[in-house]
Design a protein around this nucleic acid. Structure first.
Lengths: 334, 334
DNA sequence: GTGAAAGCGCTAACAA
DNA sequence: TTGTTAGCGCTTTCAC
């Protein structure tokens, strides 16, 4: 059995309250007793039971995080940022993959509720009314990560997706491209789908470029094969000199497909991705992409949640972090 | 405040013991009271507090997992396997990144101990004597994932790394290659470093091929830039017609470097990687690699830990799962 | 079949 | 300064 506070008290010949005190208010106990207790703790290698503590404080120093799928490298970076921030603030992270499945999500929320997590990090998916209702009911402090909500007053951290897509497209246009393809997330995804699509469309419009229906191929966010997506796009469109893919993984599919078909990148077709995952620096050719500060998004989200939990005022509810076009070798001037 | 068992009892006009019973031994309570309780539970949306339960049962249904770095896509797949198996068995996963730093590890083990986790999933690093001592002292059920220990009687799940590296090398030799380079993990890493190196060496030896010191470049496992590694290898060796990189990420560095230098893959140099991460199917050219069943490794590890926690006998202590050479386009016959 | 009471490991009044 | 006691939310004897 693990040693308990009683064991320590016995060895140190004090009451358990005194032991508790040396742990929580050391100054209130006289020096020699304190030493005895400390020695006993050391001898037994005693560590307080966090369950018992949590029961009293109503705090578990544990945060729940829901993400679509950890295998997506984009999330891995976010998680790492969360982890480092959590360590700093004394939290542990329980991580759950939802596959963007509402049932899985609700099941996990239930677990989180029972386990008395202090707060929730909700990543990358839209907040539907029933989700919000449930969160509200469970009274769970939550911050939205790489997603946000205009309907509800929920704190969030993300980039400006519309502007980022606009910038990527404008970059391509500035490089002389006039017939640009896009691999977009489904418009049912209001966070990374609609927004980036709108940014793309706005750039075309502001440059008086025609928006061709066939130049855009939509994928359902998480399960579409990137190679197939590229193939589909090129099958339905014609004469593209550039393609903007809304994730680096998708862009890698394009690179792979183009290579297979003997199309030179960037000489014949330019490719720009989105996210700037680590591996995008090692593609062939190296990928030009819209960089998101994934790590910082995760880090900041935890700081925000921490503030929320402690009732501290947070000046900005919907926080926007900067994106940046990273120009590498997959794009060229026409 | 969250509703407690007392609130339910009050509404149902029964004692808290009866409420407890309908949750844990429904048959022992008479039908009409049971209904009243169930209705009250439904009305309040009552869920039992897992902390209070854990305090009694001495079980938290929470597992700790330590990995070097979640950003390494190799681990992401393992984690996902763990997650799915955990969901099946009713566990939650607390995930921590150690950066292979002993201090970070000990700090997390401490947290795990306080939080009363049911067991530990220890991933991918050697077990040093002091680690083992600590684990032993904490009486933490543990299974080693993608690592193992010959010194200690610890359950584990991994592939046969030596054989896998041997197979990869033999494949290259069978394809006519005689001057093969290797990017290896440091030999200080007894799990993925030494073993794969030995497999490589054995293949050369059995084929009467000379082992050239300069054909091998060592990287410290987690922080070496893959592009740099490739550059270093080709700088120190000469006339290589193939290179075996001990991870797909490293192999992508080789692909990227070779492309940059105008060296054709596989026509001039063949490249084989290790792991078969998802993105290795979308490299240019598509990567030939040694596939590990990452997902299954994670999945199996949780099953094994679950059995261990419940004192069930597990026939094989050190479990070896199969690997496989996946031949794609980055290798060719000489 | 059901409730009262003890106890899981700890903290926090409250007295002394 | 210190110990005694009640209580966090729950389960589980033990009487009835």
């Amino acid at each position: 059995m693990k040693p308990t506070i009683k064991d320590v008290a016995k060895i140190a010949s004090v009451s358990i309250s005194t032991v508790s005190r040396v742990m929580n208010a050391p100054d209130t106990v006289v020096e020699n007793k304190k030493k005895r207790v400390l020695d006993a703790i050391e001898e037994l290698k005693y560590k307080p039971n966090a369950l018992a503590r949590g029961l009293i404080y109503k705090k578990t120093h544990t945060l729940g995080v829901v993400i679509p799928d950890i295998r997506n490298p984009y999330y891995a970076d976010i998680i790492r940022g969360m982890e480092d921030a959590s360590k700093k603030s004394g939290y542990s992270l329980i991580i759950c993959n939802t596959d963007t499945d509402g049932n899985r999500l609700f099941s996990y929320l239930n677990t989180f509720y029972e386990k008395q997590i202090d707060g929730l990090l909700y990543t990358s998916n839209p907040i539907f009314p029933d989700y919000y209702k449930e969160l509200k009911r469970l009274r769970m402090p939550v911050v939205l990560v790489a997603t946000h909500s205009m309907e509800y007053e929920l704190p969030s951290v993300k980039i400006n997706d519309e502007q980022a897509a606009y910038d990527a497209t404008q970059f391509l246009i500035d490089s002389g491209h006039r017939n640009i393809g896009m691999i977009s997330f489904d418009l049912g995804d209001s966070i990374a789908g609609q927004t980036r699509y709108q940014g793309f469309v706005r750039a075309l419009r502001e440059n008086n470029l025609e928006l061709k229906r066939d130049n855009i191929f939509f994928v359902s966010e998480y399960f579409h094969d990137p190679y197939d997506a590229a193939e589909s796009l090129f099958r339905q469109s014609s004469g593209l000199t550039a393609v903007f893919a809304v994730s680096d993984v998708l862009a890698m599919g394009v690179l792979s497909y183009l290579n297979e078909k003997g199309v030179a990148v960037p000489n014949e077709v330019s490719v720009v991705g989105f996210d700037n995952i680590r591996l995008s620096a090692f593609t062939v050719p190296k990928l030009t992409t819209v960089a998101q500060p994934m790590y910082q998004i995760g880090y900041r989200a935890v700081e925000k949640l921490h503030a929320l939990i402690n009732g501290e005022a947070d000046p900005v509810l919907r926080e926007i972090v900067p994106h940046e076009i990273v120009v590498r070798a997959s794009t060229g001037r026409l």
